[in-house]
Design a protein around this nucleic acid. Sequence first.
DNA 1: ATGTTTTTAATGCGATTGCATGATAACGAC
DNA 2: GTCGTTATCATGCAATCGCATTAAAAACAT
Lengths: 201, 201
Amino acid sequence: MPKQVDHEQRRRVLSEAVFAVISTQGFEAVSLRDVAEQAGVSMGTVQHYFPTKQQMLSFALSHMRERVMARLQAAIAALCEPTRRDLIRAATAVMLPVDPAGREEACVNIAFFSAATVTPAYAEQLRDGYGRVLTVSVANFREAARLGELRDGIDPDVEAPALYFLTQGLIGPVLVGLYSPDQALLLVDAQLDRMFRPASP
Amino acid sequence: MPKQVDHEQRRRVLSEAVFAVISTQGFEAVSLRDVAEQAGVSMGTVQHYFPTKQQMLSFALSHMRERVMARLQAAIAALCEPTRRDLIRAATAVMLPVDPAGREEACVNIAFFSAATVTPAYAEQLRDGYGRVLTVSVANFREAARLGELRDGIDPDVEAPALYFLTQGLIGPVLVGLYSPDQALLLVDAQLDRMFRPASP
DNA sequence: ATGTTTTTAATGCGATTGCATGATAACGAC
DNA sequence: GTCGTTATCATGCAATCGCATTAAAAACAT
């Protein structure tokens, strides 16, 4: 057997190059040559792992979801004895562009959201990914309600989507500098204060 | 004197063609040829009114803001004896992709938001435009508070941005079909119910 | 009607694109 | 070592891009 290479791993590395190009030069500037240069390989190598540009971008989008999920799990793992509120706040902070990694992911995500309006394949991937996150978020809120951590009159099935979409809506303004990351987190915390009972002493 | 044409009017018409191309073929597919064909003119005509593609897109972005504002004013004018809540809800509904016009505007806006992450000129235009809308929204909420239409404990300076960014966050999911326009409006109404006192009989 | 200027159209050009092809280098089974 | 397979690379090609150039058409002052 010939030289053996982990194809999936290679594709992930190339996807990272795609992210770098998108976040620094824009989605429309993504070319096989740029990606190859960014990854430090030849264009032929990119073609070897991705038969078409479309497949490359589609893989990159799915890899992006995995990357965000990994960062989320890492953030959660860093918490010690987290409350439901801590978990929800951590998940929110991960989605906001508060650090370079988050900013890169936000740039890439918004680019694919834009492309999804005319590319059904992207739309399906995004629906699936964000639908999953939303489901988890609702489950988290319901668990918080079951544990009695929510204030009276707070409906998990309403507030979970509300907080989630509020977070999504903050991403764009933070990216273009209309809102600072701190302002965004302040707004999120204000919402959490409204939904959760004060911590018992 | 020679043939006289309203340049601004002409640029607006071409901008509409730009919108059509963006919303049907995507931002990256925008070329001078496509825009010309969509507008039913030759490529030379497009070049005559827009020396460069960059200027064309920049003008289109500023025209988009005017178009949204016009649609907002029309929606408000259609209301008879509107309350503050009616005004705020109308403004929200205009920004959501609930009809073809709204959807086209949302597609174009998200495309420019994506492009703005690597094109400071776009970012500045968007900051300016969305900052203005946000200011008006806050003013509306403050007026509602002054009139005693808000529930106790509702802070206009917190809830106005919250509702605004919630709306922004709903646009993407509605565009890709994760949320239906009706669901989005339901979520908005739930928030308004939370903020505003019930209508007095 | 004529001349002048704006508007519209048509075409060309260098650069870049995605993709196909063929050559080279590297690695594992024998 | 030899061979066969694979990974990597370099190059070529048709198509398309933004932009420049040039010519025809149209509309008003005279």
